[in-house]
Amino acid sequence: MGEMSGQVELIRGDMFDGPSDLVVIPCSTIPTITWFVEDRLRSFGIPEPLREMEPGQIDFADLGRASNIAQVAAYAASVIPPGSSSVDVIEKIGRGLSSYASSNPWVGRIACPLLGTGAGHLDPAESAVALARGYLSAAPDRAILRLFVLEDFIFSRIKTLLDSQLGTLRPEDSGKVAVADRPLRVFISYARSTSEHTAWVKAVAAHLRSAGIDARLDVWHLRPGMDVAQWMCNELAMADRVLLICDQLYAQKADGRHGGIGWEIRVIQGDLLQSQQSNPDKFVPVVVTEDITEGMPAFIKAVFCLHWPPARHKDSSMQDELVRIIYRAQEEAPPLGRPPAFVVGRTP
């Protein structure tokens, strides 16, 4: 596969079922919205679009009460009244989303419907291809455009089309669309104990990102004006893995339920119980105290953890071990062989 800029993920389902960093809301240039979109916006407390736009233009707005859905809404003028759209308009929107993601490093996951297919009467497959083509023109590797399809038969048709055109959707034909393929998203929970500890956590996160892992850290992805508690909830929900960087202060706050960490731990404990069947190794405790008992919160005492004491903070083998854990690439047991001849036929 050639070098990619950005990724596209085709999802069968409702884009409002889970949180995203950015949610795309279809509208007309006036702007007006369909009754279906209006009903969904009302259900989740998302405001309707307000200003007139040119075809293909996007109006970005911070979401306050609806930050459980996304931090920002992108109102995309995908329909030209009385009821038409075009591949060029949808591709322009794709480029606009790409540009916004490039300028805002906190954007990692964009939820988008098949624009122009309702009131604009555009073919769903044409919409998907146009969005992918525009988006992949300049999207950063970390940002994923997730195209949501509600109907099974439409999903199957679009997936077949994308699978057959993987090498042709990029204008320069130098890469491919990754359908349902994305980097692992890892949220890092830690306490700002000291400036040295904070700098070390940041260095670990940077190393993970260099290894193709979408490490999410407050210093990079929490913007001024965001609801901190809701941001934490969204990150925990969207994460494939969660690193718990446990030092003495983290353990004290977790056990005493103090501050943001105490609140965060309550959410983590509930998620930890629910994920035991679907994603049992979602939470990865990393204890960074010399004495492992000093940095281990009570709620993870029975959980396998990575012990990374201060003396080994610059040890590259520890960084590699963490990457292996996240990718589930630990050493496997050798294959079973045949029983030796001298025991064959004997009963145990």
Rank of each mutant, 00 (worst) to 15 (best):
L147N: 11
A125C: 09
G13M: 10
I46E: 02
A125P: 00
D17T: 06
G262Y: 03
P224M: 08
R312Q: 14
R12T: 01
D21A: 05
S86R: 01
S28I: 03
G2D: 07
V129R: 12
A251H: 04
S189I: 09
F60M: 08
E331Y: 09
T29D: 01
N104K: 09
A333V: 12
D247L: 06
G260I: 02
K159P: 02
T194S: 15
V201E: 03
H197C: 00
S164T: 15
V23T: 13
T34K: 07
P113W: 09
Q276S: 12
R209E: 11
N234T: 03
Q248L: 08
P280T: 07
G295C: 09
P309R: 06
E331C: 07
H258Y: 14
I25R: 00
Q277D: 13
D59F: 05
S164A: 15
A205H: 05
G94Q: 03
S189K: 04
P310M: 04
V204R: 02
L41M: 13
I326A: 04
Y190M: 03
P55R: 05
L322D: 07
K253A: 06
F36T: 11
K92S: 11
H313R: 15
E48T: 13
D62W: 05
I300V: 15
C112H: 02
I326N: 05
I30Y: 10
F44E: 08
A254V: 05
I90H: 08
L147H: 11
M53G: 00
H313K: 13
R209W: 02
Y190W: 15
K202L: 05
V201Y: 00
S98L: 06
L50S: 13
T289N: 02
E235V: 05
Q330C: 11
G116V: 02
W263I: 03
R324C: 08
Y250L: 04
V344S: 12
I30T: 13
